[in-house]
């Protein structure tokens, strides 16, 4: 059967999964070559294109494992999770989870979180734009309501908690980085906020209390509700300073008062 559907089924199985080469070449003209060689050009183009798309999204992972290992990783990933749309913006979303389960990468335990950081960066880069909250609007609020204030975070905001110093790993593997290249994995983990107030993606390290505070605000808790929980972690947490920092840095785009 050479229907369009059958032709495309066989072609796709071979190109993406290396399956059914014999039936895939059915109906293909050799014209001076083996039909298999012609089909293989498409397999190579597809694999190369998708591997480069992954490498573009995960440049630090690529640097950490070297090109050959990355290619091997990508090949396995593509077979298991080929793109689900003609637009590749969402392709590679679960690469971090895949790496975590990929036995040959088990010796690099910080790799999945590094990949998560890169994906959050990619998501933040393409997220919707939103203007920062206008401070003048806050000035109009009756101080009596401050405790009932809550905030909407920028749509690009993502939080990452890692047991590894992934921000340092990310920074030392950026193009043009000239600092000290060795990282002590024993120095411990980090809590990160990734967001894009304007055109540039920002990765901000947070201490535990501030990470909790911003997460609670993101869950639409009011200042009073959030602070109640945060002071159990850090009894001298400075709410005002934290709010000022994140209002100035464009993390909040709106507020509400929950009376």
């Amino acid at each position: 059967m050479n229907s369009l559907l059958e032709t495309q089924r066989r072609f796709t199985n071979y190109v993406l999964r290396d399956l059914g080469q014999v039936s895939a070449v059915e109906g293909i003209k050799g014209n001076g070559l083996d039909a298999k060689q012609r089909l293989a050009i498409y397999r190579n183009n597809s694999q190369l294109g998708l591997t480069e798309a992954l490498r573009d999204g995960y440049p630090v992972v690529n640097k950490l494992v070297d090109t050959d290992f990355f290619n091997h990783l990508a090949r396995n990933f593509i077979q298991r999770y080929p793109p689900k749309a003609g637009c590749l913006l969402s392709f590679g979303a679960n690469f971090a989870d895949f790496i975590a389960d990929f036995q040959p990468a088990a010796g690099l335990p910080y790799l999945p979180d590094t990949a998560r950081l890169e994906w959050f960066w990619h998501e933040a880069f393409h997220e919707a734009d939103a203007a920062a909250l206008d401070i003048a609007r806050l000035a109009l609020i009756d101080p009596i309501s401050y405790g009932n204030l809550g905030f909407s975070l920028h749509p690009s905001a993502r939080f990452l908690v890692s047991g590894f110093p992934v921000l340092k790993i990310w920074q030392t593997n950026q193009e043009g980085y000239e600092g000290y290249g060795r990282i002590n994995l024993d120095e411990g983990g980090c809590q990160l906020l990734i967001y894009r107030p304007e055109l540039e993606v920002i990765i901000a390290p947070l201490n535990e209390a501030e990470h909790l505070f911003l997460n609670l605000l993101d869950m639409k808790l009011t200042l009073t509700q959030a602070v109640e929980q945060v002071i159990t972690k850090d009894s001298i947490f400075d709410v005002q300073q934290s709010l000022q920092r994140w209002i100035t840095n464009g993390l909040f785009i709106d507020f509400f008062i929950n009376n």
Binding site: N2, L4, T7, Q8, R9, F11, T12, V15, L16, G27, Y42, N45, S46, G49, L50, A53, P82, P83, K84, A85, G86, L88, F91
Partner: peptide, 15 residues
Amino acid sequence: NSFGGDYLNDLAPLP
């Protein structure tokens, strides 16, 4: 460039 919801990321030829 797609079959069964999987995309090839390449421009495949038609009969």
